[in-house]
Design a protein around this nucleic acid. Structure first.
Length: 524
RNA sequence: GGGCCUGUGGCUCAGUCAGGUGGAGCGACGGACUUUUAAUCCGUUGGUCGCGGGUUCGAACCCCGUCAGGCCCGCCA
């Protein structure tokens, strides 16, 4: 059974209507690691829908969070004055709109591409609109109790002057303020430099600290399920304290599920602050949404993912393509059964089917009843040797029965993204078709050399189009001492430093006559 | 100091909550096809389930211990 279905069944046992929450702070580009949280939640929602349980996904944009520091991608001189202020109140890096919107816009666009349906709750607005007011009042009224709980559960005693609300100063800054008095709805504060002031809680003059904000929103949004990153999961962490604080705000804590992080292969955890990220948008530029979803559906949330945007991603995409084929020929006929009613082998097949179904952009079923049957690695080759889509389709018509006049829309979409991929920094070198820099006679036997020299002379006069080149290749091959297979291998080694490669005539056309002949001339 | 997650064929993962003859995909190997678009199809191989104890008729699974990797206990997926 797929993990999302397991969660859905557990939720169903608790009630027939659920609110699934997910929250990300838009302090920087929202990367693939962040996307795991939202997609995980989306899968739970979809699994609920499958068994007839009502579920809504809420995305909470933590726009009330302060800018913690000047990140490497920000201009120091422009943003140092803004550290400590709510993200929603800051200027955008491109000068247009708010800071948070700047990062949220591409994120929402990625979510739309991924087929995620969600309601946005903007935390800054929520504070301004007084949605948190009741919770803040509760927190202040229970200050001592809350302080004791946090101190005890987190094993970290809070100061006696700790106050369960972070006000903002006259500039909107919330760093370094201490609350000196509270006369509802006003809180009085003193800054580190001695400035004093007061702010109105009911008008959004600050926010709850994270450990309180979380259980507070569980209450006012009636959240029943939430996934959380592993950083929140240890004893004494915010999930833990939240469990103990939720009753104070008047509700049961939601069902939770920890998920692991996504690492950039060889570079550690994705973190905007370190600059080693792939944003959701960047990924969707190079692979279709279902591949990104599949990255998440294929592994349990407790597994960390070593994400490799190069060769590993091609393998992942090809794995998806094969799964799609298996789905349409076999897996879709498998009947869903619950755990007790089927063998483990059956369960594994159901699991595979669900990995595929949950990867779909559409919410149930699939858009197509067959796979394309064209691997991404094959497409990556074609995109490199066929710069025109027309030529590419003609080629696929011959090899894969593609209808040139009415190509599958998935194909066009994949080709578009593959071309981006090939042009991007992520495309792996070993998949890149590249003419060898130099060539050495010593690397070839005398028969092979003779063959290459003959070939070199003939193509020098050949018209540089596929048909003529093909004829030349055939003639050279049949006049040489080499077996056809060996002849091809020799040519690939000479041109690409590899034993195999894309169909030779097309490859030569793409490499260009001058480049090829000047390379082969090095042998004479 | 305390806690969480992960460890299963060369690789990526199911299976652990409900103990009952260890699974899948990829790779590798072999065959078919082919004067090769890094192919495609078919078949085969491959594992003392990190390690050591315990419970049990029976343990990958439960319990205790231990090792390794990752992370947390300000803020932050």
């Amino acid at each position: 059974m797929h993990w999302a279905d397991v969660i859905a069944e557990r939720l169903a046992a608790q009630g027939d209507s659920h609110v699934v929450a997910t929250g990300i702070t838009p302090s920087g580009p929202i990367h693939v690691g962040n996307m795991r949280e939202v997609l995980t939640a989306d899968l739970v929602v979809r699994a609920c829908e499958r068994i007839g349980v009502d579920a809504e996904l809420i995305y909470i944009a933590d726009t009330a969070d302060p800018l913690r520091k000047v990140y490497p991608f920000l201009k120091e001189e422009e943003y140092e004055q803004h550290v400590g202020k709510a993200l929603a109140t800051l200027p955008s890096p491109d000068g247009d709109g708010s800071y948070s919107d700047y990062f949220l816009t591409p994120f929402f666009s990625a979510l739309d591409d991924l087929g995620v349906e969600y309601r946005v709750v903007d935390s800054h607005e929520a504070y301004l609109e007084g949605k948190y007011t009741q919770s803040v009042k509760t927190a202040i009224n229970n200050k001592v109790k809350i302080r004791d709980i946090i101190s005890e559960v987190s094993q970290r005693p809070l100061d006696d002057d700790w106050f369960p609300y972070n006000p903002t100063d006259e500039n909107g800054n919330m760093h370094g303020l201490k609350v000196t008095n509270c006369d509802w709805p006003w809180v009085e504060w003193v800054a580190e430099d001695g400035r004093t002031g007061r702010t109105n809680i009911e008008k959004g003059g600050g926010k709850l600290p994270w450990r309180l904000d979380w259980p507070a929103r569980w209450d006012w949004l009636d959240i029943t399920f939430e996934g959380y990153g592993k950083d929140h999961s240890s004893a004494g962490g915010s999930w833990d304290t939240g469990q103990h604080l939720a009753p104070i705000f008047g509700s049961d804590p939601p069902m939770g599920m920890m998920y692991e992080w996504i690492y950039l292969k060889g570079k550690g955890a994705m973190a905007s602050s370190k600059g080693n990220t792939v944003s959701g948008k960047e990924l969707l530029d190079i692979v279709p949404p279902e591949i990104m979803r599949y990255l998440i559906t294929r592994v349990k949330p407790s597994k960390h993912i070593d994400f490799d945007p190069g060769e590993g991603l091609i393998l992942l995409a090809d794995e998806y393509e094969r799964l799609e084929q298996r789905y349409h020929t076999k897996l879709n006929k498998i009947v869903h059964k619950s755990l007790g009613e089927s063998s483990r082998k059956e369960q594994q097949l159901i699991d595979e089917a669900r990995k595929f179904e949950l990867a779909q952009g559409i919410r149930s079923g699939t858009d197509f009843d067959s796979s394309l049957g064209i691997s991404f690695s094959h497409l990556s080759t074609l995109c490199q040797i066929k710069s025109q889509n027309e030529d590419l389709l003609t080629s696929l018509a011959r090899t894969h029965g593609v209808d040139v006049n009415q190509p599958d829309k998935r194909l066009i979409d994949r080709v578009k993204r593959m071309r981006n991929w090939v042009d991007s920094e992520w495309f792996p070198d070993n998949a890149r078709i590249q003419l060898a820099d130099s060539i050495k006679s010593a690397d070839f036997t005398s028969d092979e050399l003779k063959f290459l020299q003959m070939f070199s002379q003939l193509i020098a006069n050949s018209e540089w189009v596929e048909d003529s080149l093909l004829t030349t290749i055939r003639e050279t091959t049949s006049n040489s001492e080499l077996e056809p297979r060996q002849a091809f291998t020799t040519l690939y080694r000479a041109l690409l430093n590899r034993d195999r490669g894309p169909k030779l005539a097309a490859l030569l056309v793409e490499l260009g006559q001058n480049n090829v002949t000047s390379l082969l001339d090095q042998l004479s």
